[in-house]
Nucleic acid binder design. Structure first.
Length: 283
DNA sequence: ATCGCGACCTGGTTGC
DNA sequence: TGCAACCAGGTCGCGA
């Protein structure tokens, strides 16, 4: 995982210099790219923490200090590289480190730049801009009861709820579709109408999907072992729903369907995952 | 207050 | 062959 990789390879190191190769990833730092670089230089990284797709590296003081925060967006990576390694195609920010073994660089690489880097002031424990993000279900402190209760209080569709970061993090469009397929639930089923048992089982499937993806190195973010092709290993072998429009359902053989959802797509089996009455078109 | 939609981005793929 | 249109998707801000 990224966080573990960072823990191993950059904690204890001092940032000696920062090179911002593209301004967009630091857009959330109001003072600008040059100030961003200047603010970081000379500070020591003393931790590596994660919540959802956010990572942050507390600087100098683990509990009350500032922190370098990173959001990986959909295509972002944080890599640890030897200084001589060739620049990645989408290398955006380079942080030179001193004090880590052999000298290293921490690199922010991001094709689409939905994510980015910033500096959070005095929020090393949990930076304020991250504090609203829920834990992910793999986190030992994730509270199943709270999640179940909140889902069952909401009239929103269950897929939308799975993507709501204040409820649960770490679940994207693909994992949501896979977990819903396994749970045999249609994404538009309102949270209100689900039983506690259904929500708990769904949560179990979410965990399974995430664990399997991690085990296959699919979304392995280990700083030193990121596979260039992202999630291809996982995608190739294990997807039952995502991207399978028209192909037979792996459970019942019915052709899978695709539906528009939040400017993107949902994939599901119309037989195993029947749409709720509320979502069906009038004849 | 809550909910749902569209914008934000780049580059690989597809279609003419 | 070249070029334009399309698509992917986590999050945030806005309007209903």
């Amino acid at each position: 995982m990224v966080r573990a990789g960072l823990e191993r390879h950059v904690v204890g190191a001092t940032i000696t210099s920062v090179e911002v190769l593209h301004p967009r990833p630091v857009r959330r730092y109001d003072a600008g790219a040059a100030a961003f670089a200047e603010a970081l230089a000379g500070h020591r990284i003393v931790g590596a923490r994660r919540r959802g797709k956010y990572l942050w590296l507390p600087l100098d003081d683990l509990d009350t200090g500032d922190a370098l925060t990173a959001h990986l967006g959909m295509s972002g990576q944080l890599l640890v590289q030897p200084p001589g390694a060739p620049a990645e195609r989408h290398l955006r920010v380079r942080l030179s480190l001193d004090g880590a073994a052999e000298g290293r660089e921490l690199r922010f690489v991001d094709q689409r730049m939905f994510g980015g880097l910033s500096i959070s002031l005095g929020g090393a424990v949990v930076p304020p801009e991250i504090s609203h993000i829920a834990r992910d279900p793999i986190d030992p402190e994730f509270d199943d009861d709270v999640f179940v209760a909140r889902v069952r209080r909401s009239a929103s569709g269950i897929k939308r709820l799975l993507l709501t970061q204040t409820l649960i993090s770490g679940v994207g469009n693909i994992y949501a579709d896979e977990a819903l397929w396994r749970a045999q639930l249609h994404g538009e089923r309102p949270g209100l109408k689900l039983t506690a048992k259904q929500v708990r089982e769904l949560l179990g499937h979410v965990r399974d999907v995430m664990n399997e993806a991690l085990a296959q190195g699919g979304t392995s973010f280990d700083a030193l072992y990121v596979n260039v092709n992202g999630e291809s290993g996982y995608f190739d072998r294990s997807l039952h729903a995502y991207g399978r429009e028209g192909e037979p359902c792996d459970r019942c053989g019915t052709p899978m369907r695709r539906a528009a959802f939040m400017n993107r797509s949902s994939y599901f089996c119309p037989a195993c995952q029947p749409a709720p009455r509320s979502a069906r078109r009038a004849p």
